[in-house]
Amino acid sequence: MSFRASSAERWSRLSLGLLLLAQSITALEYWGKLAALTTKDGLSLPYGFPLAISSGLPFPSTLGASFLIGVWLSAAVVTWLSRRAVLGLAVMVLINGYLLVLDQQTYSNHLFLLFLLGAIRLFASAPLAGLWEMPVLLLKTQITAVYLFAAVSKLNPDFLSGGILGRELYASGFSPGYWTPPPEVLCLAAAGVVLAELALAGGLWLARWRGCFMAMGMALHAGMVLLMPGEERLGIVAFALACISVYPLFVMEGSAQTAFPSQDSSFPKWGRWLPKEPRLGQGTSGALEAAGQ
């Protein structure tokens, strides 16, 4: 019997691939960041209460930082190549967590999001029978929380006046001659961003309009990548990919069993591009039923 990957598995693989791409880009970004922190004679900036305990963590040397980034990138590659990606995922989540609490200078919102998405996926890999659908739901609620609070936190005069957008647009050098649009246009654009983020928080859950909201989300992220300052662009690309990596999980509604195919022991460990001869296990049969095959 020849085997075709189910639709659900393809969506799930796309989701994981986007997440790993975001992890790899963030690793490259942090290579530069850690190099700046370890070579410049700058101050460290530990967290206050309750994260002050993290000030005991060792700061990597220049060589140590390069090694850390090497391990991070290797973990992303191993996770992509391996069907049982628990170890690679665990390594990435640990590195994400270490950098998040190491110093205020090594925190970033996209690193935090990658940490959370990785941790939820890792939770899916834990041997907890009967919990399959939970991580999928939690990944979706996580991205809903991101869009919701991104929108709600912008409901203030600073942002709605268009001032912040104007400043970022100017800093990006995107507009010719560092020209910025008139305040009225910036004001409208700011309101549009807030409305778009609010719409994404709810709209991705609506099956009927999901395609439109996904296109809107991708356009919003593409706009951010284009319009934000160059020094932050790599991080914004990683943030966009991390957010968009959850979109496929909204599409594969009803087939949660295959959200994490690494769990399915019927799949071969290596050689995903080769024709597969599966032993139909519990997870796979559920997926095939769900995909109507």
Partner: peptide
Amino acid sequence: SRWSWQMYSRE
């Protein structure tokens, strides 16, 4: 603030 998805939201 950190930990709360407030990217570019205020001065």
